[in-house]
Amino acid sequence: MKLKKRLLSIMMAGVITASAIFATGCGSNEAASSENGEKADKGEITVYTALEDEQVSTYLAEFNKKYPDIKVNVVRESTGIITAKLLAEKDNPQADIVWGTAASSMMVLDNQGGLKEYAPEGVDRILPEFKSDKEVPTWVGIDAWETAITVNTVEAEKLGLPEIKSYKDLLDPAFKGHIVMSNPNSSGTGFLTVSAILQLMGEEDGWKYLEDLDKNIAQYTHSGSKPAKMAASGECAVGISFGYAGLSQKKDGAPVEVVFPEEGSGWDLEANALINKKEINPAAYTFLDWAISDDAMELYKVNYPIITTDNVGTYEGYENDPIDQLIDNDFSWAAENRTSILDEWMKKFDAKSEPEE
């Protein structure tokens, strides 16, 4: 528990310093007044999200059971694309809400005034380490996700690949052309992994490691979950992705094992927010209220063992306390150096990125 508190306090020190992310919510069946305006149980809203497609459909099915008269138009993209889109639209926002998008990535939008303060119903249940410390929060977290390596055991045996326990094991020449990883410019998972390596090893040694790793990389994908899916289908032997992506493939019967590197996993927080617009859609408050309700948290807990209330989840595939796997993530450093990290990565490694769709 001491380690948990230490990690969370480190995270918040960084997030708050950089002035962070979003706000979420919990629903009302009748139109009701809030400190920010009127809530509604009817209407149409546009939601930007980086949650996985299958998660979005499952979560929204539950939301629609409670609020059948609120139409939710979803724009689902990888974290980097969602962030770029929100920044480009800052002066003419198209979205009403951001839902489940990386906290570290969204600090920039908050700093530019793109988020509106809102305290969703039930926000007091969210641990203080996982929400904005402003009197009325600009963001509220829902869960955390972390770097994991998905290995296709059939392909690995066929190719005679050595066992993977650590990041450094991935440098073995036997893996040349057999590893897929996500591009940090478009994927939040890619960025949290690159950031973790630079923090764990130091910037000089970290970039040297990434250069050596690049020799074994077949492709950099634009989606954080795609490397795990490619490993599951046998398109590659090893996918550097995140825990849920690999474990869900294993649960569906794919011949994979999920490895959490012994040095520790990079991680980030999925968070929600109200977009700062001249006119706030009343149904947006209702959605954000629901999105941190007990019902919503139970849904998140199916996929992520680390949620933002005390009622943490469990998930098959994590041998130890998931909190212990997380590195001491300096979110402030990551936010301040994000642009330079991404620019450097692009110069060095973008040649192996998959084509833009």
Rank of each mutant, 00 (worst) to 15 (best):
A291I: 07
L86Y: 01
K301M: 02
T286D: 00
L210D: 08
M230G: 04
W345P: 03
S9M: 15
K71P: 02
E356M: 15
E52N: 10
M230Q: 10
W333C: 03
E52I: 06
G37M: 09
A20S: 07
W99K: 09
L127T: 01
S293P: 09
N111M: 00
W99E: 06
S293I: 07
L171D: 07
S19F: 11
V154P: 00
A296F: 04
V72Q: 08
A148G: 14
L159V: 06
E357R: 12
A32R: 15
F22I: 07
S105V: 00
D295F: 00
W333M: 04
E263R: 08
L127D: 00
E62A: 14
T221P: 14
L3Q: 15
G313V: 11
V123F: 12
G80H: 04
A40N: 11
D310S: 12
Q199F: 08
N311I: 08
A273S: 15
T147A: 11
K66C: 00
E52F: 10
K85R: 15
L7Q: 12
T309D: 01
N111Q: 13
W290M: 02
T150L: 08
L115I: 14
K42D: 01
S265E: 13
D69S: 11
K158F: 09
G206D: 09
L210T: 07
A296E: 01
Y59V: 14
V312T: 14
A174F: 07
V74W: 04
S187H: 07
P184L: 02
R76Y: 03
G141W: 05
D294V: 09
E35C: 03
N111D: 01
P173D: 10
